[in-house]
Amino acid sequence: MARDSRHGLNRRLRVNPVACDGVGICGHLAAELVRFDSWGYPIVTERALDQRDLNRATAAVAACPKRALFIQDSRY
């Protein structure tokens, strides 16, 4: 479940900016969730991920050579 409203559990795509090197594969695999700034670094969406998003986000997380992306569960 991407969003469990009973528990208020949300999943968000997040980027570790220290690890990120701006390779750019995330923006290709999850174009709906990731756009790029003027220097080629990813700006990831702050919205909670639905099931469709989650597949793309998972692919982007797996593909990142720098392991800079992750999916965070948060309760709000």
Binding site: R11, N55, R56, A57, A59, A62, I71, Q72, D73, S74
Partner: peptide, 16 residues
């Protein structure tokens, strides 16, 4: 708190 994602069970559209 953070979930290490498991690989998708069914291959997603992009790769195929």
């Amino acid at each position: 708190m953070t979930a290490r994602p498991s690989p998708p069970r069914h291959a997603s559209v992009g790769g195929l």
